[in-house]
Amino acid sequence: MVINNSHEQITSIPKAEVADLDFYYGSFHALKGINMTLPEHSVTALIGPSGCGKTTFLRCFNRMHDLYPGNRYEGSIWLDKDTNILGRKVDPIEVRMRISMVFQRPNPFPKSIYENVAYGLRVRGENNRRLMDEKIEDALRVSALWDEVKDRLNESAYNLSGGQQQRLCIARALVADPEIVLFDEPTSALDPIATASIEELMSTLKDRVTILIVTHSMQQAARISDHTAFMYLGELIEFGRTKDVFNKPLNQQTEDYISGRIG
């Protein structure tokens, strides 16, 4: 599917470029010929009905599919024009150190609040306590969690509420200064208040990182994203500035989905 280019051109610098991406779960062709750019320092939302391949697409960016047998990528995702994330010679661990991820359900480790965030640094062999303290405080501040947890960093992360746990996971994903953060429906397991606080946080993160977010909620995409990609049945149907995609969709399927006729 060719992207309809009559939308106003996206002017920001691309952080990543997806070229002819196909993905297979065994013999199931889950993503079909996707071409897209991920603009730097902005929020890009992936929307579409269940089973359209949004999460599958998202998980290509940090090679999560490598963890399970029978998965196959074709095509490329260029990071900063010089590294093909999907390249055979590129180590998925290196990719995951540059591109971190926040999952659908909060998944903190059964460790202390401090250790949860610290793990992002510990995997790299970081042991300098002062530097870690600084970075962890910074990550928790950016995730708007610091004031709530600063006096109980050694308590188990499981004592936090769902929304706090998700912000902890965001802090964990940010602590090692990634270039892109992937969000896989980060608020679908949270109540409206926790959702609002995470949405607010996301708009402040743009200065630090590039964000790609999968969301079920079109309202959420409209509220927080700068660019929106609509996917349907494994194909990228339409991609452009969020206001353009929502206000004057070029494709009939996009319009049907946005107006609630499919999905």
């Binding site: 995951r96 971190s100 999952f103 793990y119 510990r122 995997v123």
Partner: peptide, 27 residues
């Protein structure tokens, strides 16, 4: 052990052995 914890560890750039030693075994 829930798979979500393994994925959390791998997503931070942990190697397989780090995931086993830091998470799988202790839990």
């Amino acid at each position: 052990i829930p798979n979500s914890l393994r994925e959390a560890s791998y997503a931070l750039g942990a190697s397989k052995w780090q995931t086993i030693w830091d998470h799988i075994l202790p839990y």
